[in-house]
């Protein structure tokens, strides 16, 4: 034990090496200083002033639109993503490899392009938007458009989280259920589905977190009118354009806090998921 300790003792401290120094300086300049600038600016405001801006009518409406649409988008991806992951893992069909690879397109495509392309087909004169416009439903430049953009950019999360889990699933358990006379439907809901739940939730939380912070595609497809389809990132952007640094900072601190909470939640969900596997 002692020998082991002395042998590895040199590794116990952060080494004062070239990589160590570079990493520390880079992290401080690139990440810690900007983060500190936001937090210090935010918390140097009087608390009642901070609270007043953070809970103004417009801010509250904006969070409401932002989170409800991101939640719907994450939920859609939870259901459809589980289905797509299932189909990609369990079935064979022509073109499966290409379709599997194409799931990553929303990650690879720059968000501005996603915004332009989705607006083009879901606007009143677009391929799909036209059909809805005939029924009096607006998609682009309204909330449904924001929902679509959020669904698009967060589409791969649930699928990519579930695929390896479905692949590694021990088939013996299913076979036992099956040979004991459980129908395929019962086998799915009672045997296959329960262990998937933490992984689906992880995927949904990742999708939600990404959808909440999305800006590029949303700002292009939305009308960005307050109380209509304006999301928090757009509100921050507009406040900055109007030189309302204080207002932008407050909303920025609120959104940062929420992303950190989501990150924490995702870590817990991932632990739950890996715990189940043991």
């Amino acid at each position: 034990m002692n020998l082991y300790r002395t042998a590895f003792n040199s590794n116990l401290r952060l080494p004062l090496s070239v990589p160590g120094v570079f990493m520390t300086v880079y992290l401080i300049v690139m990440l810690v200083l900007p983060l500190a600038a936001l937090l210090v600016k935010g918390f140097s405001l009087p608390p009642d002033r901070f609270w007043q801006i953070a809970t103004s009518k417009l801010a509250l409406a904006t969070y409401g639109i932002n989170f409800s649409l991101a939640f719907l988008a994450a939920l859609t991806n939870g259901v459809m993503g589980t289905l797509v992951a299932w189909v990609l893992v369990r079935y064979d069909f022509p073109g499966k490899k290409i379709i599997d690879a194409s799931v990553d397109i929303p990650f690879a495509l720059p968000t501005a392009v996603a915004g332009v392309v989705l607006t083009a087909i879901y606007s009143d004169s677009g391929w799909i938007g036209r059909l809805f416009a005939a029924q009096g439903i607006r998609i682009a430049f309204a909330r449904p458009g924001v929902y679509l953009a959020m669904t698009f950019i967060s589409l791969p999360f649930v699928i990519r989280t579930l695929q390896p889990v479905l692949n590694d699933m021990e088939k013996e358990v299913e076979e036992v259920a099956w040979s004991l006379g459980a129908s395929p439907t019962v086998t799915f809901w009672r045997v296959i589905f329960p262990p998937l739940i933490p992984h689906i939730l992880t995927g949904v939380a990742l999708a939600f977190s990404r959808a909440v912070g999305e800006f590029g595609s949303v700002v292009i497809i939305a009308s960005n009118l307050p109380f209509e389809d304006m999301i928090a990132s757009v509100l921050i952007f507009q406040k900055l354009e109007q030189y309302d640094i204080q207002g932008a900072t407050v909303i920025g601190v609120v959104m940062l806090t929420i992303s950190l909470l989501l990150l924490f939640m995702i870590n817990l969900l991932q632990k739950w998921g890996s715990h189940n596997e043991d």
């Binding site: 200083l33 600038a37 640094i245 992303s259």
Partner: peptide, 28 residues
């Protein structure tokens, strides 16, 4: 490890805001 992952979870507009607060005319 958590710190390094942070840029993935912050909204890009908030990232821009941070830089403005640090390097902008009224910034640090």
């Amino acid at each position: 490890i958590t710190l390094i992952d942070l840029p993935f979870s912050i909204s890009p507009v908030v990232v821009g805001l941070m830089l403005v607060l640090l390097y902008g005319r009224q910034g640090w």
